[in-house]
Design a protein around this nucleic acid. Structure first.
Lengths: 246, 246, 246, 246
DNA sequence: GTGGTCTAGACCACA
DNA sequence: GTGGTCTAGACCACT
């Protein structure tokens, strides 16, 4: 009868808000340079008082994720995370061991999800996925017209959306949740590998969509497996070559 | 950008404690007539102050689930019987949809984990697993000597330990965490299916241990797959047959 | 441990601006009929937004001290005359006790500063001091050519500059700061005693400069002591004679 | 007319509270290990809301000056600043230039104050000063009975009180203010020179009291001058000898 | 009876 | 019409 009960930990409301917002930011729900909704509206959405919300915003501001400006044209601006290439490579190489385990896990989760999605996807799911793939295609094509960093940020947000949509298509909320968890709280630098857009980056997505549309579970699983492990390979390469340049 | 953020709700600590205890009681984790651990120990386990714990106990006493008696022979006595078989079946059938999804997820996670464990297990892991399997064997053998409900409870604890140990053997902490989450934080009556011990319940474990010891990943995965889905099948059967009896 | 801490009172920014401007007006820093600097420049000088400045101006307009006129020839016109001689004397006599203490303090600070300056002054310091003394001399000489009130205002500014320069020459920033504090943040009508220029007003300065140049600490201290206490004596006289005229 | 007006800076109420409290702590008004008054009472004394007070407390907690504990026996506990001897010497030698200027200033202020006090002191002032000197005497005598660090802290607090009382006796609030400013916001390590009590530390105080009681301004000034410069000499010695030991 | 947190509402400074 | 600050009051968790 020893220690049968889980310890309780009552999180302060503002801490929950911090996590909520941080997750949204890391998932790219708000892009760098964009403004968050006004404090008063955010407080409403999150069902907390403005004071509590602001407590959370102060934490995020301390982390450098957002910045507040006052005045009529002011607001809460999402900051772009600004790691230099060198710092980024350092960061990756220090966490290489963790990353390998995380990608092993991710590979399991997302491969199984793709397989299920190929079976269970609805027409609605296919439409969603198509729309996202097209959006990413447009981003890759129109890259030169815009701030490259912003394009990458948008691409990452769309990528997150794509994988989340496959989670939805699988019909299993636990898988959706796991995919989001991997990306947000555990796995910051997915795809941040690209300092500029890689034309191939989007190819896997289109193939995957096709396999899911054609309801070929094994094919979908294989593509996803290669997709995920391809990203890991890219990270490995970056780490291997990085120190020489940095 | 409308309403992208989930409302936050900060639970009072004592409410979390109430839920924690109520679930333990409903699952028969504490049997009727038994005494709960002393308040001071419960408070310690739950990492809350005794005041907060007592707040929670008062609620449960109001619901008639427990009763406090003072004095040397006193204590917190579990008052009402835990869920009756009928109620339990009802409960399961109401949550059948959730359970199917959860077992689908569990199947993915644990199958992959078993496969990895068969590759990565250390001698230390094998010793752990052996010890647990033997403990379960002894429980099944000695069943008649004791209160059956108590034996089931002990068996469930050992089962959880077994699956956790496979997670450890896999070497991937994300999988370990997922296995624990599935079992602990999501209400999962794994094995509570058995009102009395099923001799076969332990067979899968021994086979699985052998496959892991022999480093046969595919075999381990297959056994685990059947094991998990066997449990789900048992639940389905219970639900199918239950209403007729109830 | 009772009531050891002073109550805090946070002044609104616009209130501080009001006091700032009102004091400048009452001291005749801006003469009746003159225009204040444009709002944009005032806002810049005061380090507040134009909105806040306008808030303050509205208050002063309500008190009849200024009046705003729009248009190309418009501006903020100082409306009411600054303190009359009578009011000024009244004001001084009401604060006579404070002034004695302040001059006692000033005497200590500035005497010690002059002594140090005579030891530590650099060539650079001497040049500065000479330039200021000459400027004041020119003002006294050219007095008749201009609005007397304006000359007084200019003389006061130069006087402040002179004492500040001695602070700098002393080499001790704490003394410089104290001199500035005495003059600026505590309402101090040093020299505002003179409604018209007193030819002797500048004599002390030249002597002081000589003592500092010749590195005669005790002489410099003595001159400064007499200079400061001479001003206090002039104020006393004014207060003594004032009520009879008023 | 350029830049005639001082920039306005509206301090947030909580910042003023921070300074207020920090000054009280540095002046030794609250001793290490002691508890501050309860938040609700502090808020009352400071005339701010509890929220604002807590904002300030959080800052001070961040600086390590205080620590909050909850519960009936809880409270806001004053932390003892814990610089090692080595760090302390380092700190002093880095700030030696500043310290010399500060002591020059302090010497001027406190010498003049002592002189005035010898003239203006009331019977009430003498009683205060006697009481403080006796308190310090008792501290030096009873040193062994208590935590040495605490004795030093108490001695420092009493020392601050003594010099403040001379300021009061001088009758000039500007001097009182300057003495407090020097000690609190500008001059942390007065007397912290002593890691254990120096029997001579109190001698100067008794002599000074006698000179003030006997109304001998010049003697009082001389004693104070030697007292202040003696402290500076002690610091110099410490810095000179410290690095060898450290 | 302490500190910890949250709330609803208000006013302010700002662009 | 934005963020920045303050308030008064309430309830909670704790020792």
């Amino acid at each position: 009868m020893n220690q049968v009960l889980d310890p309780v930990q009552a999180n302060a409301a503002y801490e929950i808000v911090v996590e909520n917002l941080r997750r949204a930011l890391l998932l790219g729900r708000f892009l760098p340079g964009e403004k968050l909704p006004p404090e008063r509206e955010l407080a409403l959405q999150l069902q907390v008082s403005r004071t509590t919300l602001r407590e959370a915003l102060r934490v995020l501001e301390g982390e450098g994720l957002i910045q507040s400006k006052r005045g009529a044209t002011g607001g809460i601006v999402v900051q772009s995370p600004h790691m230099s290439h060198h710092e980024f490579v350092e960061f990756l190489s220090r966490r290489m061991h963790d990353l390998k385990q995380l990608y092993e896990y991710r590979s399991i989760i997302e491969t199984a999800t793709a397989r299920l999605a190929a079976t269970n996807r609805s027409e609605r799911d296919l439409e969603n996925l198509s729309a996202i793939v097209e959006k990413m295609h447009a981003l890759v094509a129109g890259e030169t017209l815009d701030d490259p960093a912003l394009v990458v940020a948008k691409f990452l947000a769309a990528d997150a959306e794509f994988h989340a949509a496959i989670g939805t298509a699988s019909g299993n909320p636990h898988l959706s949740q796991a995919i989001e968890d991997i990306r947000a709280s555990k796995f910051l630098p997915i795809g941040a590998v690209f300092s500029k857009m890689d034309p191939k980056a989007n190819e896997g997505h289109a193939e995957l969509l096709k396999a899911i549309r054609d309801q070929k579970p094994d094919l979908a699983a294989t593509i996803m497996y290669n997709h995920v492990n391809g990203t890991l390979a890219a990270i490995r390469e970056l780490v291997a070559s990085g120190p020489q340049k940095g």
